[in-house]
Simulated scan of single mutants.
Amino acid sequence: MWPFSSSSRLTVDPTEGDPTARALGQALARHDWTAADAVLRSIPDADDRAYLLDRASAVPDLWPALGSWVAAAPGDPLPLTVRGAYAIGWAWEARTAARAKYVSKERFQEFFRRLRLAEDDLDAAIALDPDDVTARSFLVLSARGRQVPKDEAAARFEAVVSRYPHHRFAHEHRLQYLCHKWFGSDEEMFAFARTASAAAPAGNLLGALIPDAHVERSMEASAGDYWASPAVADELRAAAARSVFHASFTRRPGWVWAMNLFAYAFSMTGDRQAAAACFDALGDRVTEYPWTYDTVLARPEKAYAKHRQRATSAG
């Protein structure tokens, strides 16, 4: 069993313990564009690059400085992609994670302004390299914030998966767009999650779309004792068997996101053995989502520690 830290020492690490994400974040924080460029170009996989740029959004106050990198490399899509990806996180910082009814008009105006800046950069990067999957994947994320019509959001997603069929980052944010709380419905969300996870190779991270969809559904006010359903438990076990519990599963970038989703979902269904296996793999790698959905302990570290203790305790 992993030597777990006490709940008081648990923290949400923006890099999720990934050394490459940490190296990129450090390079960006000191405005070392040469080092940041080298890190990103050493990662040819577009999904892995999206993961790294998503993690780098936690670097504070980076937006103004990135302009110097863009200016120093005219015609290079990479700095534009980095700045565009960063600006989406910067936009959500202005909006906050609060429900829309609690967000002021001024915050929304700044949110949309920053998203426009983000999409300008991402569009410019794509114009320079039409097959740039990484830039396109962040347009899937920004579609939700920009409130683009359904056909446009679907086209953005298709532009990614036509080039990279099992792109985890794009699928994750497409599912969020299809949630009832955004622009879809429970039926659309589950149909998407089930189709995508079934089409993915065994051991693929897209299996985590299943617990992701169940987590979102469980937060509906009419859900009741949602997690007590045997059908939910059965679907979760089947999804895990084909993804994070499969012999082909590897700890590639994004695995911490997937394993946290399964850990939370198994804990909520009361499947202590499956939850314990997830916690054992994770150790202290706690993510904010979905643990902030624990309405009793909104702090993700405390919620994670509570659920882990319940799953791994004897008896």
Rank of each mutant, 00 (worst) to 15 (best):
A274I: 15
A311C: 08
W291H: 06
A281L: 11
A305P: 01
K302F: 15
R308K: 06
R308Y: 00
R310S: 09
A303W: 06
A276F: 03
D280T: 09
Y289E: 00
R299V: 11
A303L: 05
A303C: 13
K306N: 10
R285Q: 04
Q309K: 12
V296D: 05
W291S: 09
R285N: 04
A311H: 03
H307N: 13
A276K: 05
A277I: 07
V296E: 15
A275Y: 00
L282V: 04
K306H: 11
A298K: 03
T312Y: 03
Q309L: 15
R310V: 09
R285V: 01
A276Q: 08
E288Q: 15
L282Y: 06
P300W: 01
H307E: 09
A277K: 07
A275E: 02
R308A: 10
T295F: 03
C278F: 10
T295S: 12
Y289C: 07
A311N: 05
F279Y: 10
A311M: 13
A303M: 06
V296G: 00
D284H: 08
G283K: 07
A276M: 05
E288S: 15
R310F: 14
A305T: 07
R299Q: 15
R285H: 08
A276W: 01
A277V: 08
E301M: 14
A275C: 07
Q309E: 14
Y289K: 06
V286H: 09
T292D: 11
T295I: 01
T292L: 02
T312M: 11
T295M: 00
D280N: 12
H307R: 00
L282T: 03
T287G: 02
A305M: 00
K302Q: 10
A281H: 12
D294N: 07
A276S: 11
V286K: 01
H307M: 07
E301C: 13
A277L: 09
E301G: 01
Y293Q: 08
A275G: 05
S313W: 05
E288M: 15
E301W: 13
L297G: 07
E288H: 14
G283C: 04
F279P: 05
A305D: 08
V296P: 01
W291D: 06
C278R: 04
C278M: 14
A275T: 05
A311G: 06
D280H: 13
R310G: 08
Y293A: 01
A303V: 00
S313R: 08
W291N: 04
K306R: 15
A277Q: 15
T312W: 05
V296Y: 12
Y293E: 08
A276N: 14
Y304V: 02
A305H: 00
R285T: 01
F279I: 06
Y289H: 10
C278W: 14
V286S: 04
A274R: 04
P290V: 07
E301Q: 09
R310P: 00
F279C: 02
K306S: 13
G283A: 05
A274G: 06
T292I: 12
D280E: 14
P290R: 11
A277D: 14
A274P: 01
L282D: 08
A275D: 06
V296H: 12
D284N: 12
S313K: 05
A274E: 02
T292C: 09
S313G: 15
T312E: 10
T292E: 06
V286N: 01
Y289A: 10
A281E: 14
K302W: 11
